[in-house]
Design a protein around this nucleic acid. Structure first.
Lengths: 157, 157
DNA sequence: TCCTTTGTTTAATATGTTTTAAACTATTTT
DNA sequence: AAAATAGTTTAAAACATATTAAACAAAGGA
């Protein structure tokens, strides 16, 4: 059954690329997702033939994304790790957080551009501001989408 | 007005990062999007202070994405370039094409795993296959989403 | 036609990211 | 408490990507 597992792990790596994720995070997450029981960093490293440093770094990343969480086994003082099985939630939360951060950087710029432009609006600049308006509309649309995604998803299926 | 333009170009670079796009594609697309008239590669290179080789390579990429198209000015044998203003369409088409390619790689693997598994289903493996099922459900959901995105988008606003 | 300008291709350089190795810290076992 | 095992951190290496410079090809103007 390990062959099947390894094939699926490779598939996860492939899919992860499309989200800009590195090999190690995908491998670790997929392994934990497919495991019957929580695993220790050492076990993860051995199974994936990956240095313990790499395991450590990427486990932390996965924890920050809420993609993985610690599990405490009694009588054993170190944490094991298990996957958050709700993949949809993980992807969406990450997308949402990332997008919001970017938009918060962009929005003040848009405001500034608009303010400067209102002062001196020549016909040559008109087209420029039509496009600025279009971008602002698009940003609103994205924000609407992020706010209402849960609802949309429910309607969709 | 060039200051405003440059600020918006920087904003585009920032947003592009979240989609895994490189600096040059974002800059070139944004410049063309905000320009009143089509531009030549030389003009683009000068404005963005970028080597002509880089302009050439990334213009081709943008053309392949349908993000930019050639415009022929009569009496002039070289093409100028202009932006496809439908940003939403560009992003979605790219997402769709990319996702479909990945899923077509993953789906045969899923089938293979399921086939191998049906032969010898022990209770230890049961949990494993429950998770395989979950992934298949998720893939179906993504495919549904890609097929029906246009519709969903219309409903959403 | 020849010279100049513009655009493409490719090899090299520069930049950024991922992974490892090794030094360090913390925990467990004896 | 000492030795062994496990985990973290960091500096270096391996690897990947983006950018440029320069050689080449195509087009425009003299």
């Amino acid at each position: 059954m390990e062959k099947a597992r390894d094939m699926l792990i490779e598939a996860a790596v492939n899919l992860g690329e499309s989200l800009g994720l590195n090999r190690a995070v995908c491998q670790i997450y997929a392994l934990l997702y497919l495991s019957n029981a929580p695993l220790s960093p050492t076990e993860i490293g051995k199974t994936l033939e990956m240095s313990k440093g790499n395991v450590s770094i990427n486990l932390r990343t996965l924890e920050q994304w809420n993609a993985v969480r610690k599990v405490w086994k009694k009588g054993y003082g170190r944490p094991l790790y298990t996957a958050n099985e709700n993949i949809e939630e993980i992807i969406f939360d990450k997308l949402k957080t990332g997008m919001e951060k970017r938009l918060n950087y962009v929005k003040p710029i848009m405001k500034q551009v608009r303010k400067d432009g209102d002062k001196k609006l020549s016909s040559k600049n008109e087209k420029f501001f039509i496009r600025v308006n279009k971008i602002e509309k698009l940003i609103e649309k994205i924000e609407f989408f992020l706010r209402n995604f849960e609802t949309i998803r429910t309607i969709a299926k």
